[in-house]
């Protein structure tokens, strides 16, 4: 059902946990299947220096979370915002069709975390 790469990210997830002094937090959920992803970011000079996640959900949801933290880390905010659901799925060697929309919440959670960071900056 799942690719070897996805199973690797599910069984050995990267960057799990909270960032207590995060510069931005983004939460994204799918009410139907229940998957919920919380993404924490640290930003320095417009670059994502740290990204961590907490996820409630299936194997695919956890693997997507792990993958997006790896993809986003070290990127500028602009480059991070260019990450799409499709590119995350591709990086995991594909997602089963029924999980493509349900569990693929990483890009949206990341976008929300960056928006949160920007609104915090704007409020100074």
């Amino acid at each position: 059902m799942y690719s070897a790469k996805l199973m690797d990210h599910f069984t050995n997830p990267r960057n799990v946990g909270e960032i207590a002094d995060a510069d931005g937090v983004g939460m994204e959920g799918n009410p139907t299947c229940g998957d919920t992803m919380k993404l924490f970011i640290k930003v320095k000079d417009d670059v994502l220096t740290d990204v961590k996640f907490q996820t409630f959900g299936c194997g695919a949801a956890i693997a997507v979370s792990s993958m997006i933290t790896e993809m986003a880390k070290g990127k500028t905010l602009a480059d991070a915002l260019a990450i799409t659901k499709e590119s995350v799925a591709e990086a995991l060697d594909g997602l089963p069709p029924q999980k493509m929309h349900c569990s693929n919440l990483g890009a949206d959670a990341l976008r929300k975390a960056i928006e949160d960071y920007r609104s915090r900056q704007a409020q100074g």
Partner: peptide, 10 residues
């Protein structure tokens, strides 16, 4: 606080 499929896979 956790989901069934993750439990089944592990």
């Amino acid at each position: 606080y956790i989901e069934g499929e993750g439990m089944l896979l592990l």
